[in-house]
Design a binder for these strands. Sequence first.
DNA 1: CTTGCCCTTGACGCATGCGTCAAGGGTTAG
DNA 2: CTAACCCTTGACGCATGCGTCAAGGGCAAG
Lengths: 130, 130
Amino acid sequence: MRIGDAAAAAGTTPRALRFYEERGLLRPPSRTPSGQREYGPGEVARVRAIRQLLSVGLTVDDLVSRAHRFDLLDEDPPVRCSADPGHEAFAPVVSARLAALDAEIARLSDLRDKLARLAATGSADVPGEG
Amino acid sequence: MRIGDAAAAAGTTPRALRFYEERGLLRPPSRTPSGQREYGPGEVARVRAIRQLLSVGLTVDDLVSRAHRFDLLDEDPPVRCSADPGHEAFAPVVSARLAALDAEIARLSDLRDKLARLAATGSADVPGEG
DNA sequence: CTTGCCCTTGACGCATGCGTCAAGGGTTAG
DNA sequence: CTAACCCTTGACGCATGCGTCAAGGGCAAG
């Protein structure tokens, strides 16, 4: 399987796969004699897992920071690593991300409030110099 | 008043003032013979207004898109334009921004939900190919 | 005149997850 | 062999609101 088919199978693009590899989320795959990357179903499954983790708000750096633990997801079992982010290894990044999301939601809600009051009354608390 | 003092008076930096000017939020101020920008209290008040609008979530482009209406805030009254975002001219951008904030808050809340469930159960709805 | 702080314009940096363009080579069908 | 499509690496683009560095000139005090 070359990169185009692997990317399609994982629901993404060749560029994304090279990007994950460059960032250390995918180990450099084997190459054909001419230098083209070759992927197996295991790699595709891993890419799916990566994309699911990203889709729920984890960042590439979050995954990179746990890449060494992440690895064991496809080393022991051959193909089963479709997505197992409930794995204990992710607890730290997940809880950190939850906190970050909560903080961001609170910040935006506060902003929304201020803006709504500003529009309604024409005045809100001015930041001043402090 | 040169740029440093004007910026301090408005609670920001010289760089920000030049930036607002460059983006069309501030009209080019008068210059000393040697080319240094000179600001009056009116400009400072306007900068405060700009910063308040930015602080509640409006973007520079939002303000730019209404710059022509924004202008009348300091053309008619001499100094009083401390901040009057309740002005009818801002209704479109304000409501658009409110909608954008609501959408973003909803998106993040959804993400937070998915992540929490993913961490708890180890499974969430996988995006698949569609 | 000199010191030292402030001003000028121009331009790159940041953080995120890739998109996209470029130049050159591989691969496969006819 | 050729067309057509896929691959390779390298590098810039995006969107936001400025921060920061650089090189050169201004202004007030001693």
